[in-house]
Design a protein around this nucleic acid. Structure first.
Length: 511
DNA sequence: ATGTTTGCCTGTTCGC
DNA sequence: TGCGAACAGGCAAACA
């Protein structure tokens, strides 16, 4: 019933979004030819990746000279580089630098060519015979006959060209993430009320940390990514941890990439080994290496945020599901008494229809569902939901997506409060991925409960409120609680569930 | 003025 | 099978 051992078959929310570590590993091993990008493999250039590229370029194209440039994607040129094609030819590369995630080629005559690889940008040095990469955006022809190719599938990357050693595009960056001063970090945390992870990602405060390493650093410091920085209990200690762990993780990652890159010879195709060392990023649904709790994932500031709820002291989230009148809310009320924040999805769904943004989206699906100005045409909606599967799917997809965002936001703000979510359709609405614990309420007293509530047509309500897949709900919940007995007994059952979680993995933090 | 949201981009995957 | 939607995410720009 309870998944103490995490089998590979346990549900793995979000895994679809990023390749599993094992698949990435095998891809990296396979690609030993050196020069052509493996399109199934994507590297997110953060500080260590950019540093690795810099080192490769430094050892391969130093003293080479730009001859001409093919600009295939002019939009990616900064204003300073608009006339790149006329200004760059003849310039010799005399050095390389890196500032945060910016890569700087120093040119003879105190000039600077700057790259930002953003999401998927890559720099390749291609031998004369080598075929072009898949998504070339700039091709720099060199005097040696080689080409420096800026390949960038999504065209997020950017290029600057300055006739100076100064590079204004890097002026606003904070100190390098792998050389942080603990006192600086402490002062930073003290005056930031944003969630910790947002602060780590802010390049003007600390330069070089991207999403992967922000998650990893939070984990290594055993700090919640969601906690407002100024609410951290022991700031001096946390600051020291952040400074130390940032240096350790980033420098380690640099060495890992360096070692792998050798097998790629002259190419600047970076495919590091560090993904094998990641503790939380891309590991959602898998057990924590330290405590075996399941690594979870939510969105924070629009970015995927993976964390160990146990190691990182993220408050417990319990999902309570079950059919109509099975005693879900009774369970929730017990937990509410214990200090849990209670989120009722039925209520949130009703309130959701007042949201203008959601309303606009839903009107686009079928405007008739909303009466002229104000209300929801409930009878019409019910009819459409039962009659038209395509409508039903689109409508519910949008509604559930809205609710997921709402729940996600609420959880992010409740950085020190445990939460119980009552959701009859916990799995359909994909709210289960927020829940460390999922409880199914069951009873054979549904009809009696409905009658006691004064339901005029309990049989009909029972039919309408039935889950279409009760067995999967049983399978996917961690606990089933029979609510048929007396209230005192039920409270005991709920407490037993909480107790067993405490013994599972080092206890809960909200007590 | 500040903090928050959106747009840029394309490829992949998922589920109905 | 096809199709819509979600998601990856750093940063600038637009927005309140």
């Amino acid at each position: 019933m309870r998944r103490r051992n995490l089998s590979p078959s346990s549900p793995r929310p979000w895994t679809k979004l990023c390749p599993s570590p094992s698949s990435r590993r095998s891809k990296a091993r396979l690609d030993t030819r050196g020069s052509i990008a493996n399109k199934e493999e994507s590297i997110m250039p953060e500080l260590p990746e950019v540093e690795t590229v810099r080192r490769i370029l430094n050892s391969s194209i130093l003293n080479d000279t730009f001859q001409n440039v093919e600009v295939l994607s002019p939009k990616q040129l900064d204003a300073s580089a608009r006339d790149l094609t006329s200004r760059l030819p003849g310039a010799t590369i005399v050095g390389t630098d890196r500032r945060g995630k910016f890569l700087i080629l120093r040119l003879a005559g105190e000039r600077s060519l700057v790259f930002h690889l953003r999401m998927e940008g890559k720099l390749f040095v291609l031998a004369p015979q080598e075929p072009l990469t898949a998504h070339p955006r700039f091709i720099f022809h060199l005097a040696s006959g080689r080409r420096l190719v800026f390949d960038d599938t999504r065209r997020f990357g950017k290029v600057w060209l300055y006739d100076s050693l100064a590079t204004p595009c890097t002026d606003d960056l904070g100190p390098e993430a792998n050389r942080l001063d603990p006192q600086y970090v402490a002062r930073l945390l003290e005056r930031e009320n944003r969630p910790l992870k947002e602060v780590l990602l802010d390049q003007t405060k600390i330069a070089g940390i991207g999403n992967i390493y922000a998650n990893e650093i939070c984990f290594a410091c055993r700090l919640s990514p969601f906690i407002p920085a100024d609410k951290i209990i022991d700031i001096p200690r946390a600051a020291a941890d952040i400074a130390n762990q940032s240096r350790r993780i980033l420098d380690l990652s640099i060495t890992k990439n360096g070692s792998t890159v050798k097998t790629y010879r002259a190419s600047a195709h970076v495919s590091g080994d560090f993904q094998n060392f990641l503790q939380v990023y891309g590991r959602e649904g898998e057990p924590c290496h330290l405590c075996h709790a399941i690594i979870m994932k939510r969105a924070l500031a629009g970015r995927g945020t993976s964390f160990c709820p146990n190691c990182q002291h993220v408050p417990l989230v319990i999902g309570v599901t079950g059919g109509i009148a099975t005693g879900k809310s009774t369970i929730c009320h017990f937990l509410e008494k214990d200090g849990f924040q209670y989120l009722n999805m039925d209520r949130m769904a009703k309130e959701a229809y007042d949201n203008p943004g959601l309303r606009t989206d839903l009107k686009a699906i079928d405007p008739q569902v909303f009466d002229s100005e104000k209300g929801l045409n409930k009878d019409y909606l019910r009819k459409r939901l039962t009659d038209d599967q395509r409508f039903r799917r689109r409508w519910l997809t949008r509604l559930y997506s809205f609710l997921r965002d709402e729940v996600n936001e609420t959880l992010n703000h409740l950085y020190n409060t445990p939460v119980v979510i009552e959701a009859p359709l916990l799995f359909q609405a994909k709210l289960d991925s927020f829940c460390r614990l999922k409880i199914l309420a069951e009873t054979d007293q549904q009809l009696a409960h409905l009658k006691a509530r004064g339901d005029k047509d309990p049989e009909r309500s029972l039919r309408f409120g039935a889950t279409n897949d009760p067995q999967s709900y049983r399978d996917r919940c961690d606990f089933r609680i029979d609510t048929s007995g007396p209230l005192s007994e039920l409270e005991g059952k709920v407490n037993k569930v909480l107790d067993s979680l405490k013994s599972l993995s080092g206890g809960l933090d909200h007590d």
